[in-house]
């Protein structure tokens, strides 16, 4: 079970594969569910040039670890990986990766969804959008829908 905060752009597919090869024995898992969140260049009808992602070092990692631990109480899975960008992000760049490995598909799908939804509502991250002529903090209501 691993949480990674990424200050620089990362390739979620490469990270998934590297993690899988280093942590899971071939033949031990039958299901891999993943979610990747990627930055759009539009939001609320506006063009977005850049995103700044602030976090609370220490608490953010701790909250993500708690979320994974909660998921483990509810579903039997073998491994989970959460990677999340911080700092400046540009359109097209991945923001978040959640991967869950399990024996069968049910726990992988369910735990992946649970971890992602809990991250959205509880993990201390805040997005600030750079629009062509101004900057604005993203509101929680609209972020939960997107």
């Amino acid at each position: 079970m691993t949480v990674q905060l990424k200050p620089k752009p990362f390739d979620p597919f490469r990270l998934l594969l590297q993690y899988q090869e280093s942590r899971l024995a071939p033949g031990s898992y039958g299901a891999t569910a993943s979610f990747i969140g990627t930055m759009r260049d539009f939001n609320q009808g506006d063009s977005v040039k850049r995103l700044f992602l602030e976090h609370y070092p220490g608490m953010t990692e701790r909250e993500l670890e708690k979320i994974i631990a909660e998921a483990r109480q509810r579903w039997a899975f073998l491994e989970a990986l959460v990677a999340h960008r911080v700092g400046d992000i540009f359109p097209g760049e991945p923001i978040v990766l959640v991967v869950v490995w399990s024996v069968h598909r049910g726990p992988a799908f369910d735990a992946c969804r649970y971890i992602m939804e809990a991250l959205k509502s509880r993990a201390p991250f805040w997005k600030k959008e750079k629009l062509p002529h101004k900057e604005r903090w993203v509101s929680n209501d609209e972020n939960l829908q997107n």
Binding site: L53, H55, V96, L119
Partner: peptide
């Protein structure tokens, strides 16, 4: 003690 607005990650 920390104070912050509702979170917007993901």
């Amino acid at each position: 003690v920390a104070f912050f607005p509702p979170v917007t990650g993901g």
